[in-house]
Design a binder for these strands. Structure first.
Lengths: 322, 322
DNA sequence: ACCAATGCGGCCAGATCATGTCCGCATACC
DNA sequence: GGTATGCGGACATGATCTGGCCGCATTGGT
């Protein structure tokens, strides 16, 4: 432990895993004298990390929240947990979080050792049914891989099945990923066709990078989301329904928190809550999260939602003791 | 940029955000000569990070997946995304992931600047209804805070509402957090009562740390999970139901992936799938994720599940056009 | 075949930094 | 008051870091 650089990292790591350390302990761990340790702490402070210290018998050093984030030193298990969380966020449709989740994921996956990557993939499969739906599932693997190639402007090859069912092989320069409702799209420059194309990611197979990196290209139009909107109008249909709950405003908000902020109290003790979803089923799924013992009903203008509802009702009517 | 330590961190950061860099660019960014840059790269390699390099006109440096994880250098947005993902995983009940999610979260929250913490809290509220249910929601804030105090053996105070409704004030030394079915428990040494106690986290209020750190205590028994099991037998009731789907084995597995691995094909083209959940509602919620256009029915031995089903059916029968 | 761009690493001289030791001081808890 | 802790000045020694130079190897394009 003779290199100051190594020590700086180790020190940060130690301060991240146990909040309090005495100088003596730290010096021992780092195999340096107490004086040198103080100098190391001083250096980290100079770098912007807020390390507080307390004198006295119960004293010690502590890494505090500062204005800048220190490098995160995580162990294997934690890295797996982070990767899984990010993949759920990216695929599960967490609104705005999607894009940044992907960029963080790209960073992590780039350096994730192979065995950890396997664990992530295994865990990923246990995750919530939120990722299901009518549409084909988007593979988080593919998404993570594409995020990397977009970032690095690396050409990729894949097979693509067009809406017509025709299957073609493509060689493209990825530009960006956009989530549109339940679907993910890749916007890329198609090398053979010499034009911009959008690809639905669930239609794409046998993806692999070519290792060839290219100069970034200028996408026509404002940004990727705008481009997609122009290219695929109406790609994100929305379904909605209205729930009417017999509960007072306070208990409603206690139960639903920020989720229910759109609800209005239409009469004393009756909350009206308009919910939206990507599929009729998803809209109706809200009913499973209503509190027990509360009177409610649901209504909708939308034929698709009502058709789904009556289908569910018929099925439930047949529920039998096994 | 004259300090080698700073440069090492910056270099890692640069290599994490763009996969490829030429030596010249890097040297320019770090404001050192190309020779020094090579030495820096050499040093990082000596530290165990695998940095590959390619000579030639299209050459450059690249950080690869190695056996060890480099320190993660994330920007603000990414940190927020990570924190949100981890909180969802911890609260949403991702089985084994819970404990490690919490430990990673503790690391991150410890150093998360205040403004970012606000963003995390705001986003957290938009997250999936999975966290709802019959039980009171567990606050991810409280959970994260407790994870920190457990790790650091910091005494905390809180108000606790016993099952009887009696409210007491407690001063405890947190030992560990355990997820039991839908609930989270804190296992701690109660300072005033001089004994070990378990607390349901959703019954706990006005939590704040005292800043006092104490020596770790030895928990009687194997580990925290064992202790809880002895202290609160039968804390995790399970509900179950059986879905019968008219689909062939292949399309079933295509649709459900690893989730459906327990299903068996009881006759040609009929899959039987036993699902479990923490509440009757959660069990039934599976029906919303069944593929469109497939015949199915559901059955259950459990009175609670069947009561919930018929309640839903009645409600759906009343669905009206608004 | 040639050229340009890139990475690699040896060598050197001078400047800089890091280290351990010793010291006195301040602070907090018992 | 005693003890454990953190703070930082001074100093001498030795290690290191840096920039500049060199020739070499590899790669890709002209």
């Amino acid at each position: 432990m003779t290199d100051p650089t190594v020590r700086a990292l180790r020190l940060l790591s130690l301060l991240q895993t146990h909040r309090f350390w005495s100088g003596g302990k730290l010096a021992e761990r780092l195999e340096v004298s107490a004086r040198t340790l103080r100098r190391d702490v001083e250096r980290l402070r100079g770098l912007g990390y807020r390390i507080s210290a307390e004198p006295g018998a119960a004293g010690g050093y502590q890494l505090q929240a500062g204005s800048a984030l220190p490098p995160l030193l995580v162990d294997d298990d934690e890295a797996v947990a982070i990767a899984v969380g990010l993949r759920v966020a990216a695929v599960g449709g967490l609104d705005d979080a999607e894009r940044t989740s992907l960029s963080a994921l790209a960073k992590l996956e780039q350096v994730l050792p192979r065995n950890l990557r396997r664990r992530v993939a295994a865990l990923q499969e246990h995750i919530s049914p939120v990722v299901w739906g009518e549409h084909k599932r988007v593979s988080a693997d593919v998404l993570a891989q594409l995020a990397l190639t977009c970032r690095d402007r690396e050409r990729v090859r894949f097979h693509y099945t067009a809406r017509s069912g025709e299957e073609t092989q493509r060689l493209v320069e990825p530009h960006s990923l956009v989530a549109q409702g339940p679907r993910w799209y890749l916007i890329a420059w198609d090398v053979n066709r010499e034009d911009w194309r959008t690809f639905r990611i669930d239609r794409l197979a046998k993806l692999h990078g070519t290792g060839v990196r290219v100069q970034p290209r200028q996408l026509p139009g404002e940004n990727a989301a705008e481009f997609l909107k122009a290219d695929r109008p109406g790609a994100a249909p929305q379904y909605e329904a209205m729930f009417r709950l017999h509960m007072d405003r306070r208990s409603f908000h206690t139960h639903f928190g920020a989720w229910g902020r759109d609800a209005v109290e239409n009469a004393e003790g009756v909350m009206e809550w308009r919910v939206r979803g990507r599929t009729p089923q998803e809209v109706l799924a809200y009913m499973f999260w209503l509190p027990d013992g509360v009177e409610w009903d649901v209504c909708s203008d939308d034929d698709a939602v009502r058709a789904a509802a009556s289908a569910f009702r018929d099925r439930l009517a047949q529920l039998a003791v096994r």
